[in-house]
Design a protein around this nucleic acid. Structure first.
Length: 242
DNA sequence: TATAATGTTTGAAC
DNA sequence: AGTTCAAACATTAT
């Protein structure tokens, strides 16, 4: 479920509840559920993969991790982690991590690192990359403080598109290539959003889960790369190792 | 049916 | 004190 664009879609789906009052709360979440009762949702927000429900003076942070899910105005056949009922409709969350954030969400997040946010600032990301020259780019792209919202799919697709080997050291990648990579991260994330919206995301994968390179027809190598050991799909012919 | 997968936090071990 | 690592959590498609 995760990756930033999916959270943007969730925000769109729950927009119908903006300004509405929570009239019932349920679920197996250990948070203080009574705190939410009769509270009005001020706004839905997000930072990377964090989904934020803002109330007066605090917010609820929901992280879907690997397997989390949700249903709007319906239930699925598994235990509800947290369910919010409104006068007209409901939101149900499953298998996610939930916690309260006190005060305004802006005090908790730097939105300029969120690749889906209007405030996204590639210059900040560039500076953060400069500070970690020894880090492999496959790890750097998954760093949420640098590229909030980027997950393993976006990582693989971006690296394939800009022809950079996942195991390249950040400090060795030429500046123009870094620029391209920053640009493509933003571009692909929004393509991801469009494609996901139309249920055709997988159709557009060029590298992720693929077996052959569509550019040179070589076999793609599947390898668990970097400190994070997430799988990468690599064309050793087309992707430059720096 | 076993396995792997769009992820992160925690706490022990080094 | 830093890092490294396994474990934990949890669901679903292949």
């Amino acid at each position: 479920m995760p990756e930033g664009p999916s959270i943007v879609l969730l925000k769109e789906e729950v927009d119908q509840f903006t300004g509405k009052q929570v009239i019932a709360v349920c679920g197996n979440s250990k948070i203080d559920q009574s705190r939410l009762l009769n509270k009005k949702v001020i706004a839905f927000n997000s930072w990377g993969k964090h989904f934020l429900i803002c109330f007066k003076g605090f917010a609820l942070r929901i992280h879907f991790l690997m397997f989390g899910s949700y249903r709007i105005n319906e239930k699925k056949d598994s235990p509800i982690r947290l369910g919010l009922t409104f006068k007209k409709g409901e939101i149900n969350f499953y298998a996610c991590a939930i916690k309260y954030l006190e005060g305004d969400v802006s005090t908790h997040y730097d939105f300029s690192s969120d690749v889906m946010n209007d405030e996204w600032n590639p210059k900040n990301a560039k500076a953060k990359l400069k500070a970690i020259p020894e880090t492999l780019i496959c790890d750097a792209l998954l760093e949420q403080d640098i590229f909030s919202g980027v997950g393993n799919i976006i990582k693989n697709e971006v690296l394939y598109r800009v022809r950079v080997h996942p195991e390249s050291k950040v400090g060795k990648i030429p500046a123009p290539k870094i620029k391209k990579l920053l640009d493509e991260t933003r571009i692909y994330s929004f393509q991801f959003l469009d494609w996901k919206r139309n249920y055709e995301l997988k159709k557009h994968w060029l590298a992720h889960t693929k077996k052959t390179c569509l550019r040179c027809n070589n076999s793609l190598i599947k390898k668990y790369t970097g400190v994070k050991k997430r799988r990468s799909f690599i064309c050793e012919n087309c992707q430059q190792l720096y």
